[in-house]
Amino acid sequence: MIELENVAYNYGGGELLSDLSLKLSAGSFHFLTGPSGSGKTTFMKLCYGALLPTSGSVKVFDEDLRKLDRDQMAMLRRRVGVVHQDCRFLDHLPVADNIALPMTVSGRDPAQESENLNELLSWVGLSDRADALPPELSGGERQRAALARAVIMSPDVILADEPTGNVDWEMSQRLLQLLIELNKMGKTVMIASHDLALIRAAKSQVQARVLRISNRRLQLAGADL
């Protein structure tokens, strides 16, 4: 699904990530952890083409991201669901329209797929918040809306960057359950998180590999995780 080979990324004159290699196979579940500023978000961005590596190659669905033009990159992003740390909504659109945004931009009419949309809203527990504007949502609601938007196109891969960063433990468990459900449906899931308690809780429910970024490199996390 996603393959990184000897990837390095320089930022601000220094090397932020160095010699990263990783293969995310179909249906796998990965956690990416590391201290703040270690490059987790950068790594996630490299995986969906928001950033291109300084050296090395990133392939998504066997496509080398460096060789894609902007239109091809847009098409690829429709197959990768991304939950951003800060959710990133269009604040002037209601929650339902924000969730349906990937469908809208790909030319599908959300009105004709309202059943799917309602089902998705119900799945993330936002049926009664469909008409609210994003600034009116709580942190947990925003994260669930972001997750719903990430999966509305039925992507094969879901990348979630600190999806539980701004929510309480109960809500982070609920979000984790949603991501585990997706994985059980055959989706490849990768979550970047510094929340070790969450990772431990997940490992008891799903077979997950835990990767750690340390000293600019990617390592398999130790037995403590």
Binding site: A50, R70, D71, A74, M75, R77, R78, V82, H84, R88, F89, L90, L101, P102, V105, S106, R149, M153
Partner: peptide, 15 residues
């Protein structure tokens, strides 16, 4: 920021 969000969800530049 709107443009960035649109791109992230797969909008083409033409759109």
């Amino acid at each position: 920021q709107v443009i960035e969000v649109l791109r992230l969800v797969g909008a083409r530049d033409r759109y």
